[in-house]
C-alpha cells in the first residue's frame, strides 16, 4: 500500500493505492494520526488506486470520520472501485460518507 498526501488550502487530500487490509491498515491509521496531529480537519480520501479493502480499512476510515466530526471537520471519499464500493454498501457506510466520482469533485465540495 502507498499513501500520498497533498494539501489543497484547508483540505488534506490522501491518495491511497494498493490493498487496504488488516496488514496495511495500521500504516494508514498512523498517517491519519499524523495529519490530525498537524491540525487537519477536512479530508478527501482518494481510493481510486485501491482494488481491495477489508473491514480493517473501513474501521480506519470510520475512526478518522468520528475524530474529525468532533471539530466539525469531514471525511469525503472519491474514486471507489466496484469491489470497494460494495463493502461500503453492505455496511451502509456509503450513507455515512459523502462519496464523489472524482478527486476534483470531492475537493470542490468543500468550497
Amino acid at each position: 500500500m502507498e499513501i500520498h498526501v497533498e494539501r489543497d488550502n484547508t483540505i488534506a487530500v490522501v491518495a491511497v493505492s494498493g490493498d487496504v487490509d488488516a496488514g496495511t491498515a495500521p500504516q494508514l491509521r498512523q498517517q491519519f494520526d499524523e495529519l490530525l496531529g498537524d491540525g487537519e480537519q477536512n479530508f478527501v480520501i482518494d481510493l481510486s488506486g485501491v482494488a481491495f479493502m477489508d473491514s480493517s480499512g473501513l474501521a480506519t476510515l470510520v475512526q478518522l470520520f468520528k475524530r474529525v466530526r468532533i471539530g466539525h471537520g469531514d471525511v469525503r471519499l472519491c474514486g471507489l472501485q466496484p469491489e470497494v464500493r460494495r463493502i461500503f454498501e453492505l455496511t451502509r457506510l456509503d450513507r455515512v460518507f459523502d462519496v464523489f466520482p472524482s478527486r476534483q469533485e470531492a475537493v470542490a465540495s468543500y468550497h
Partner: peptide
C-alpha cells in the same frame, strides 16, 4: 450483527462473511 445505522470502528468482519 452491528447496528448499521450507527457507524462503528469495528465489528463488521463476521457480518461481512455472512453477507458474502
Amino acid at each position: 450483527p452491528p447496528d448499521l445505522s450507527n457507524p462503528s470502528e469495528g465489528g463488521y468482519g463476521v457480518f461481512l462473511i455472512h453477507q458474502l
